[in-house]
Design a protein around this nucleic acid. Structure first.
Length: 330
DNA sequence: AAGTCGGGGCA
DNA sequence: TGCCCAGACTT
């Protein structure tokens, strides 16, 4: 439950399920997890995003094992653990231990905001107090875990963000949003940072057997600790300029082999467009420490979905297409 | 309270 | 393209 709830933070169930199964077979017990390296845990987490969660989960496992402590059964104690905030503490306390705790996640906030006709910030303090009060009342009628799960499921399947299916909703009577005739007007819009566009160039070096050259992301605000082809910002750079910038990232002699298809990758508010430049590796033995050749479909190192995107964008079909388009433009 | 972190699915 | 998702942590 610890693993699944950490994975489920801001991540939809359908994307968690396969990762969860793999993770649990790789680390069946909390002891296995505590004994693993950060690299090993991040490798299992690859593609899920919000990689801090993986590091926090590892720290959590280690601290429990070190103290020979059981997993706490109260909200307060759970929330002291790294990576466990108000939602996750309530989820584990109610699901695993039957405690009377309210899981205020995005789904439940939406359901509550609609039922109560709550105007204002559905993530603020007032909302917390009002929603919790209502849900604690519901828990007089059924076990806390049942109520929590029911509200989440209702939000995920019926009381959806857009186009809620009010016709089949068991809470329709008494729902102020339904009564208002415009249920999807609740909750009010969330404040979000405006998206910003970035352009990168990446250097994608391939060995004869199709393996791609990656290195660990050391600096920068995002994707730190993951293994990826080297990239650098190149806003405003032209094709030749971009290629020069990409090649300068490389630690080995290579043979330029054109450009791939542009890749789009989003990281929170950043909308990044990446031009991959292709290279052939001349001498595999020249790959220095800190760099590795990996198969993109089975890297064996911590990485992001960006690796597969870049690799895919460099496949021969795309290269030909890109070359043809450039020729036409000329 | 606001800013930050991945990534994909969906209208 | 904008919005959202079984949020937590830092400032």
């Amino acid at each position: 439950m610890l693993v699944s709830e950490l994975m489920l933070q801001q991540t939809q169930v359908g994307r968690v399920v396969p990762k969860f199964d793999e993770f649990m077979s790789r680390f069946p017990t909390i002891g296995d997890l505590a004994g693993a390296s950060e690299e090993q845990v991040l490798e299992q987490w690859s593609g899920l995003g919000y990689y801090r969660r993986a590091r926090l989960l590892l720290g959590l496992a280690r601290s429990l094992v070190e103290r020979a402590a059981p997993i706490p059964d109260s909200v307060e104690a759970l929330q002291q653990l790294p990576g466990i905030g108000p939602y996750t503490a309530a989820a584990i306390a109610s699901f695993a231990f039957g405690r009377r705790a309210v899981t205020l996640d995005g789904n439940v906030r939406r359901v509550a905001a609609r039922f109560l006709g709550f105007e204002g910030d559905a993530r603020g303090r007032q909302a917390n107090a009002r929603f919790t009060e209502w849900i604690l009342g519901l828990m007089e009628e059924a076990p806390p875990g049942t109520i929590n799960e029911a509200l989440m499921e209702l939000g995920a399947t019926v009381c959806t963000p857009a186009g809620p299916v009010c016709g089949v909703c068991p809470f329709k009577e008494g729902c102020l949003a339904w009564g208002s005739g415009a249920p999807d007007r609740y909750p009010g819009p969330r404040t979000a940072r405006a998206p910003e566009s970035e352009r990168w160039v990446a250097a994608c070096v391939f060995a004869d057997d199709g393996r791609i050259l990656v290195t660990k992301v050391i600096s920068g605000p995002i994707l730190r600790g993951l293994w990826l082809p080297p990239w650098i910002g190149a806003s405003g750079a032209g094709q030749d300029d971009g290629e020069a910038r990409a090649r300068a990232l490389l630690p080995v002699m290579v043979k330029p082999a054109g450009a791939g298809r542009e890749v789009r990758h989003s990281v929170t508010y950043r909308r990044i467009r990446i031009m991959p430049f292709l290279y052939e590796l001349l001498d595999e033995r020249a790959v220095p420490d800190g760099w590795r050749l990996v198969r993109s479909e089975d890297p064996g190192v911590p990485t992001s979905s960006l690796l597969a995107k870049l690799s895919e964008a460099c496949k021969p079909g795309w290269i030909e297409w890109n070359t043809r388009r450039e020729t036409l433009n000329e």
